[in-house]
């Protein structure tokens, strides 16, 4: 059976809906034979969904989060958008949580694990790109990780 290389879903802004979407994404990854990319892909997907649900839509279940996933020839793509006012993505490149902070690490995970991160002008949609592992040693973005 041929599997789709793209998946698009819209969910209400709840933690339960994130879990359901991630289960769909897991099945999509399996159907596309992307077992080696599972950890990094799911980590980035969850971070982007958390940001959209909590910070973008303020956990308001009436507001939707729009998510699409795509497998290209070399890259995997995650795009997540919300209905919020957006955020100041200019601080993306430098933001780092301080010692003891219990939040504020999502953007750093983008930087460490995605090969490319693009925000729309308003700052309420992110596109994350990661290279498929297949034979590579590490799923971590070696240019930025250490």
């Amino acid at each position: 059976m041929k599997c789709s290389t793209a998946l698009r879903l819209k969910i209400p802004s709840t933690l339960a809906a994130i879990e359901q979407l991630c289960e769909r994404a897991r099945l999509w990854l399996e159907a596309n034979g992307l077992h080696e990319d599972w950890f990094v892909f799911m980590l980035l997907l969850r971070e982007s969904l958390n940001n959209a649900v909590k910070h973008g839509n303020g956990s308001d279940p009436s507001l939707l989060v729009d998510c699409w996933l795509r497998k290209g020839l070399r890259w995997l793509y995650i795009s997540v958008g919300d209905c919020g006012a957006g955020f100041d993505w200019g601080r993306f490149s430098t933001h780092q949580a301080c010692y003891g902070d219990t939040c504020g690490r999502g953007l750093e995970i983008y930087r460490l694990y995605a090969d490319k991160v693009i925000f729309n002008r308003r700052g309420n949609r992110v596109l994350l790109r990661l290279e498929m592992r297949k034979g590579k040693d590490s799923g971590l973005n070696s240019n930025r990780a250490e």
């Binding site: 799911m42 980590l43 969850r46 971070e47 958390n50 003891g100 902070d101 219990t102 939040c103 995970i109």
Partner: peptide, 16 residues
């Protein structure tokens, strides 16, 4: 098999 930033935050809160 997976920990995200919310999980990391919780571990740090417990440590604090």
């Amino acid at each position: 098999d997976l920990v995200d930033s919310a999980g990391i935050g919780l571990l740090i809160a417990a440590r604090n």
